[in-house]
């Protein structure tokens, strides 16, 4: 099963990378007020049950992909 995990900073958390990117885009003339930077992981998970796959991905976020102190995450099944 192909899945997408997106990890980004929790709302309200200071995002220096996003701020610098926004500034640079504004320098180029784009009307950008804010940018939030995150990471996307595309995973091939070797299970066929959707529910089980979601649970696995959730576990992966808790154990490695996100640090609960600063990160939020979302999980999506892309294709079976």
């Amino acid at each position: 099963m192909r899945m997408k995990v997106e990890v980004r900073l929790k709302p309200g958390h200071f995002d220096p990378e996003g701020d610098v990117t926004a500034k640079s885009l504004r320098d180029l003339g784009f009307p950008v007020s804010t940018v939030k930077v995150g990471k996307v992981y595309i995973l091939e998970v070797e299970v066929s049950d959707r529910k089980e796959a979601l649970k696995l991905a959730e576990d992966m976020c808790k154990k490695l992909l996100a640090n609960p102190v600063k990160d939020d995450y979302s999980i999506e099944v892309l294709s079976p």
């Binding site: 958390h13 200071f14 995002d15 220096p16 990378e17 701020d19 808790k62 640090n67 600063k70």
Partner: peptide, 14 residues
């Protein structure tokens, strides 16, 4: 502990 309760995040200077 399995879950971290502190983090070392990106420097505020980026």
């Amino acid at each position: 502990s399995e879950t971290p309760s502190i983090a070392l995040a990106n420097n505020s200077s980026a």
